[in-house]
């Protein structure tokens, strides 16, 4: 079972990873959205990093709650309430369980509830849902992360800003799915979610 130190390592790594991919995420979002996913997420994770650097945590629930509320406050786009709701939902589950699969499943439920989206609508859920399924089956791999993200390309968006484009959203990767793939990558590299 992952320790709180591993979670912190993974999430701090995510806070460094997103700014490095800011332009790429903005470009993905320019194709089918409003072009600011990278900038918004960068603003959010930098605030999270500031918070984590100046706090100490002995309970996962407190760590997740701080991350969730910081993202809600600081991101400034739809990914704020969505990622924020994921971590707030994880914070609630963390009072009962520290099982990474249960926590990620709670995060997925938080996103679904807030965004009212289901799999196949070309959103971040199209990374979270298949990967939580893989976690339940004990089959999460780097390839699965990449495959889930790549699968968003041929989907037609029916939720989020890209849905205004209808069929024209087909053929583009989803930016929220990409940032979610980075999150899962970081969690795997730190050993929170084992291969």
């Amino acid at each position: 079972m992952a320790t709180i130190e591993q979670w912190l390592e993974a999430l701090l790594h995510f806070c460094e990873e997103i700014p490095q991919h800011k332009d790429q995420l903005n470009q993905l979002d320019s194709a089918i959205g409003d072009g600011d996913h990278g900038s918004n997420m960068t603003r959010g994770v930098q605030a999270v990093k500031d918070k984590l650097d100046t706090s100490s945590y002995s309970e996962l629930t407190d760590l997740f709650k701080d991350i969730g509320m910081t993202l809600v406050s600081k991101v400034g786009g739809a990914s704020g309430p969505l990622y924020g709701s994921a971590f707030i939902s994880m914070a609630k589950t963390a009072t009962e369980s520290s099982d990474p699969t249960a926590l990620m499943a709670a995060g997925l439920e938080g996103i679904k509830k807030r965004g009212r989206a289901e799999p196949g609508e070309k959103t971040m859920i199209d990374v979270w849902q298949p990967l939580v399924d893989k976690l339940h089956a004990g089959q999460l791999t780097q390839e699965a992360v990449s495959e889930a993200f790549q699968n968003t390309k041929e989907m037609k968006a029916s939720k989020g800003r890209a849905s205004y484009l209808g069929d024209r959203s087909i053929g583009h990767l989803d930016p929220g799915a990409q940032s979610s793939a980075y999150l899962f990558d970081c969690l795997m590299k730190a050993g929170v979610l084992n291969e």
Partner: peptide, 11 residues
């Protein structure tokens, strides 16, 4: 107006 406005309102 649009999507994230509603989600932030809900929270």
């Amino acid at each position: 107006d649009l999507g994230s406005a509603k989600m932030n309102l809900e929270i």
